[in-house]
Structure formats: structure tokens, C-alpha cells
């Protein structure tokens, strides 16, 4: 019994310590925005890495998701004779929900894991220690540009995902299944309002912060708790980063939706 209480206490203490450390990590990253060196170039590089290089995978995901939505939506709506509402169904689903979530999940898998591994390797190869010894704040130098780049790239990628998804839905609904193009576009333009777009934007900003925060934090502290600095710790940190970031995105999606609805 005492063993169980002690074990639970240790877990609770670890959890509180971990949350505190995560909070301090985030605070240091935010504080790094105004610190030298200038971050224009490194941020641009990160925008290219997170944004431009994700175009292809986001495009594919968006197009096929839109096409599936077109198919499923048509099947469901035709049961009620409401095929004309397909544009509204596809547009609202993508802009409010699927666009931000799918984009964030895909970017986590592609760029978040890479960021975690990059920072983790820097940790095990003493490069982060080297930065500290040069009195260079690693949070400001390494993580802050990634956070700024994520905040720029993710909303843009989300918008791209929305557009391509709607195009996919249009392609299937109008070109393949014979829904009227006018009805599709009319449903889309009349039902999608600014609040829907706003919700999508807010979500993509929140997901960007969560994804960069969790993935870089996991890489930064790779092996530090275990006291072992090897490839295994980096791979474990990367796996944890992707799982935790994905779960956080899905949970926060529910919370944001419930607040903004």
C-alpha cells in the first residue's frame, strides 16, 4: 500500500515537474523573439521547410479528403434528395474542421518529427551544450524561428488544404456524380460565413503552437531524464513527440470548437 502511494506520488511529482519545465521552455522560446541574432533568415528557412516542402503532401491529403467527402456527402444527401447541399457540406466540413486538423496532423508527421529529431541529435552531439557555452540562448537561437515559421506556414497551408479539398469535392460531386455546378457553388458561398473561416484560422494558429512546442520540447530534452544520450533516446523522443502532438491537436480541436461554437 505504501509502495503504491509512493509510486503515485512520484508519478504526480514527475508530471508537475514536467509541466513546469514545459512552461519554462515555452516562456524562453517566446522571450527569444526579441533577442539577437536577427531571425529573418532562419525563420524564412523554416517557413520553406515547414510550409513549402509540405505543399505536396498537404495537396494530396486535401484533394483525396475532398473527393471522399464529395462521394460520402452525395451518398448521404441523395437519401434526402438534397444533393444541392453538397457544396455546403464539403465547404463547412473542410473549413471548420478537417482542413486545420488534417493539415496540422500531416505537418506534425512530416515536419514536427524532423524538427524533434534534429534538435534531439543536436542534444546528443553536445551542440546544444556548445551553444550554451557560447552564451547563446538555444531556445532563442534554435526554437524561436521554428515557432514563428510554424505560425506563418500552418494557416497558409490550412487555406491551401481547404481550397484543394473543396476542389476535390467539386470534381467528384459535379464532374463525376452530376450535381449541378451552380448549386454546388451557391451552397458553398451562401453557407460559409466569416465565422467559419475565423474558426479555421484560430485552430491553425493554436495547432501550430502546440505542434512546434511539443515536438521541439521532446527533442530538446531527449535522453536528459534517462541520462543516456544515444540514437535510441532520439527515436523514442520523436515517437513521443508525434503521438503527444497529434493527441494534443485532436483534444484542443474539441476544446476550441466548443468555445467558438
Amino acid at each position: 500500500m505504501i509502495y503504491l502511494v509512493r509510486k503515485l506520488g512520484a508519478i504526480a511529482l514527475d508530471l508537475i515537474e514536467g509541466l513546469g519545465r514545459m512552461g519554462m521552455f515555452f516562456f524562453r522560446v517566446i522571450r527569444g523573439v526579441g533577442r539577437p541574432p536577427g531571425k529573418y533568415l532562419s525563420t524564412l528557412k523554416q517557413v520553406q521547410f515547414i510550409g513549402t516542402k509540405s505543399f505536396f503532401v498537404i495537396g494530396f491529403t486535401a484533394a483525396f479528403t475532398g473527393m471522399v467527402l464529395g462521394l460520402q456527402g452525395y451518398y448521404t444527401l441523395s437519401k434526402f434528395g438534397s444533393e444541392g447541399l453538397l457544396g455546403s457540406a464539403v465547404g463547412l466540413s473542410l473549413i471548420r474542421e478537417l482542413g486545420p486538423v488534417l493539415t496540422a496532423l500531416m505537418v506534425t508527421g512530416r515536419a514536427g518529427s524532423a524538427m524533434c529529431a534534429e534538435i534531439g541529435i543536436m542534444r546528443i552531439e553536445e551542440q546544444i551544450d556548445a551553444l550554451e557555452c557560447m552564451a547563446v540562448d538555444p531556445h532563442s537561437y534554435l526554437i524561436t524561428p521554428k515557432l514563428i515559421a510554424g505560425l506563418i506556414a500552418l494557416p497558409l497551408l490550412t487555406a491551401f488544404c481547404d481550397v484543394l479539398g473543396i476542389f476535390g469535392g467539386y470534381l467528384i460531386g459535379v464532374q463525376l456524380l452530376g450535381v449541378s455546378g451552380g448549386a454546388f457553388m451557391d451552397g458553398l458561398t451562401s453557407s460559409v460565413v466569416w465565422d467559419d473561416v475565423y474558426m479555421g484560422i484560430v485552430k491553425s494558429f493554436c495547432f501550430a503552437v502546440l505542434m512546434i512546442w511539443i515536438c521541439t520540447y521532446k527533442g530538446y530534452y531527449a535522453g536528459l531524464d534517462e541520462g543516456n544520450f544515444g540514437p535510441e533516446e532520439v527515436s523514442w523522443a520523436t515517437t513521443q513527440a508525434v503521438v503527444y502532438a497529434s493527441i494534443s491537436i485532436l483534444v484542443s480541436d474539441y476544446i476550441i470548437t466548443s468555445i467558438l461554437l
Binding site: P36, P37, M122, E125, Q127, D129, A130, M134, A135, V136
Partner: peptide, 24 residues
């Protein structure tokens, strides 16, 4: 500090590595 492995930043050239503390 010279670390055992050198601890150079792999994504930067040799001169960029040396420039890091100078730029900051």
C-alpha cells in the same frame, strides 16, 4: 570550450559555425 566531438553545427559551414557567437 572545445568539446570531445567538436560539436560543430552540421547544417552550417565551418565559417558559419565560427560566426555564431560573433553574430550573437
Amino acid at each position: 570550450v572545445l568539446f570531445q566531438s567538436g560539436a560543430l553545427f552540421n547544417s552550417l559551414t565551418v565559417s558559419q559555425n565560427i560566426a555564431v557567437p560573433l553574430k550573437v
